[in-house]
């Protein structure tokens, strides 16, 4: 969706002067969300950065009807909101869970899985900054292998990250996509498409965090784009049986067109300790992930034809 179209929207999503850190990726995502569906959306927000970003009483820093909820409850609260709106005949409404990685992939995972299993008519956006940033950068289920956090301060995280988008896809829901705050038009398009589908939708949004990943606040978008350009983050979309790699990631199906991984890694203080061997291992894992995504694309393509 074009920049002029987004700029022409009346609902802003983000209001100037909210408490988000300087260069915050969540704000970029929330701004796009507000511009696309702010007039129809209700936001359910579990504990996380956005609990703060939403503003300090009596002001709200966002432009949404917004319900703060306990950490593990978001997808269930959203299911309840949906149920009440359905009973009241409000089909126009879009109920959105705006969650971090902890709220969706870790403490709230059972709740998310329950809502996905019920195919609740809600949209879950997981704005993933790859650690518990709001409490001071502790390792989460989506923190990448080797990344330094305050609970993996010396050696880096010893476990691989979990893939919340693919886990959700296996719940047989109608819509799952990955996105990046580096590509707002792609994100806007995905939000629009998801908002037109009845049933459970999830967008896994890559949100590089300046203080958490230790890069300067002006590099948020640069880092997000490099994640895609090096192939470390793959943008794809599953829409009711169709699985496609999204346009921004399309060139990088071809490994030779990907930028060197070090360009992405060297900007981040959390990865400054990596050895060459570590980087080779990360690259191997990225290749493996590409294989999986390409195979899935093939699988669904043949599935649709058959």
């Amino acid at each position: 969706m074009s920049i002029p179209w987004l700029a022409s929207r009346r609902t802003r999503g983000v209001l100037p002067g909210n408490p988000a850190c300087s260069g915050c990726p969540h704000n970029i995502g929330l701004k796009v969300l507000g511009r696309v569906v702010g007039d129809r959306a209700i936001l359910v927000v579990p504990a996380g950065c956005t609990s703060i970003i939403a503003g300090y009483w009596p002001r709200e820093g966002l432009e949404f009807p917004l319900l703060h909820v306990p950490f593990a409850s978001a997808a269930a609260v959203a299911s309840g909101v949906r149920a009440a709106l359905d009973v009241g005949g409000r089909d126009d409404a879009i109920v959105v869970v705006w969650s971090g990685d902890g709220g969706a992939a870790d403490i709230g995972f059972a709740t998310l899985s329950g809502a996905a299993t019920r195919n609740e008519d809600i949209l879950v956006i997981v704005s993933d900054n790859e650690a518990y940033m709001n409490t001071g950068v502790q390792a989460s289920g989506t923190t990448m292998w080797k990344a330094l956090t305050t609970t993996s301060p010396v050696l880096g995280k010893t476990e691989e990250r979990k893939d919340i988008a693919l886990l959700t896809l296996m719940h047989k829901v109608p819509y799952v996509a990955t996105a990046s705050i580096g590509y707002p038009s792609d994100l806007a398009e995905k939000i629009r498409r998801a908002s037109e589908i009845k049933g459970f939708k999830l967008i896994h949004l890559h949100s590089p965090c300046p203080p958490g990943w230790r890069f300067d606040s002006d590099k948020t978008v640069l880092v997000a784009k490099l994640a895609v350009e090096t192939g470390a983050w793959i943008l794809w979309e599953y829409d009711r049986g169709n699985f496609k790699i999204s346009p921004p990631s399309t060139p990088y199906r071809d490994k030779s067109r990907r930028k060197p991984l070090t360009e992405y890694i060297k900007l981040q203080g959390r990865l400054a300790h990596l050895t060459e061997e570590d980087i080779r291992e990360i690259e191997r894992r990225i290749d493996e992930n590409w294989n999986l995504i390409l195979r899935l694309e093939e699988y669904y393509a043949s599935h649709v034809k058959a």
């Binding site: 700029a7 983000v14 209001l15 100037p16 002067g17 988000a20 300087s22 002006d218 948020t220 978008v221």
Partner: peptide, 26 residues
């Protein structure tokens, strides 16, 4: 702009609201 402090209309110059701009540099 993460904080939506830039006013812009198609074919217009960006105008920055310095009372709220956090100076992130994006």
């Amino acid at each position: 702009c993460p904080d939506d402090v830039i006013s812009w209309a198609p074919k217009g110059l960006p105008i920055i609201d310095y009372s709220y701009c956090k100076g992130c540099g994006i």
